[in-house]
């Protein structure tokens, strides 16, 4: 039996279709579920193995991105989410989904060994540029991160599409704690640095870091490595034809299936989680 994925939607989430699709492309069973179906108890979150909170503009980003949807989840889905995390099931938040997970307090979450406490410890605020932008960035992953989503991944190009992606925490110690646990899973990197050596705490210039994030943070995980969120969109490079420079390589020969030689770098992230769940279930 393969992994069952709940892809949340409603209230302005808008990457639900492609998020569902990428999980299906790596062999999972995925279903779009409206937030209110979980809230009303109509659908049981524990029937799923993975929860994905996709990108979008929940509630128009008003009062801070992810905040109002985060509140709905924090107050109306609290027990269900707590049990999901305690059951060791993976959760991913992408872009607006990351903002939601940060504002519910699921990311970065409490110290290792403590159950989720829904206390907000960091935030995502307006880009230093003051602008919403869609632009491609280079990401580098921390190979020592406990994150189950990013295993084996080193570097990836994908788009950011946000106006509020600057990750901040109140103190240096907060960031140091996450760094020590390798919870700063993914950072913006200078593409001219050698792969594997792109991670730096020194702020990169715009637009290498598109938002001015502290320590160039693009995404973080909780202490277990199961809950993961990031501002960039790995699902947006599920196929190589979505890469802005794909015309600079040779066109494919007429044979072969669509993704033959054309799988994008982002798909591995979703495959990792599905394989993790499948291994656990078997």
């Amino acid at each position: 039996m393969t992994a069952k994925v709940a892809v949340l939607f409603g209230f302005g989430i808008n990457c639900d279709h492609e998020t569902k699709a990428v999980f299906e492309l790596v062999g999972a069973e995925a279903e779009r579920v409206h937030v209110n179906r979980f809230v009303s108890g109509d659908t049981d979150l524990s029937a799923f193995d993975i929860l994905a909170v996709p990108g979008g503009f929940s509630f128009g980003d008003h009062l801070g991105s992810g905040r109002l949807l985060g509140n709905r989840m924090r107050f109306a889905m609290r027990e269900a989410l707590q049990r999901f995390v305690e059951d060791g099931k993976p959760i991913i938040g992408i872009c607006n989904g990351f903002q939601v997970l940060v504002k519910t307090g699921l990311l970065p979450g409490p110290e290792s060994g403590s159950p989720p406490d829904f206390i907000q410890r960091g935030s995502l605020t307006l880009n230093d540029s003051g602008r919403y932008e869609d632009r491609w960035v280079t990401l580098e992953f921390d190979p020592k991160s406990p994150c189950i989503w990013t295993k084996g991944m080193t570097r990836m190009e994908c788009p950011v599409r946000h106006g509020e992606g600057k990750y901040v925490m109140p103190t240096v110690e907060d960031l140091d704690r996450l760094a020590a646990n390798h919870q700063l899973t993914v950072r913006y990197a200078d593409p001219s640095s050698p792969p594997g050596e792109g991670i730096t705490d020194t702020p990169l210039t715009y637009p290498l870091s598109p938002n001015g994030s502290m320590r160039n943070i693009a995404g973080i995980c909780d202490s277990s490595g199961l809950v993961f969120g990031l501002m960039p969109h790995p699902e947006a490079i599920y196929a190589r034809w979505l890469h802005p420079n794909h015309t600079s390589t040779a066109a494919p020969s007429p044979s072969g299936t669509a993704l033959d030689g054309w799988e994008g770098e982002g798909l591995q992230l979703f495959r990792n989680a599905v394989e993790y769940v499948n291994a656990r279930k078997s």
């Binding site: 492609e18 990108g55 919403y132 869609d134 599409r161 969109h233 947006a236 599920y238 979505l242």
Partner: peptide, 16 residues
């Protein structure tokens, strides 16, 4: 660039 030109993960030839 301030328009999202690739949500839905389908845009193969982009404005840039």
């Amino acid at each position: 660039r301030q328009y999202d030109h690739e949500v839905i993960a389908q845009t193969a030839i982009k404005p840039f």
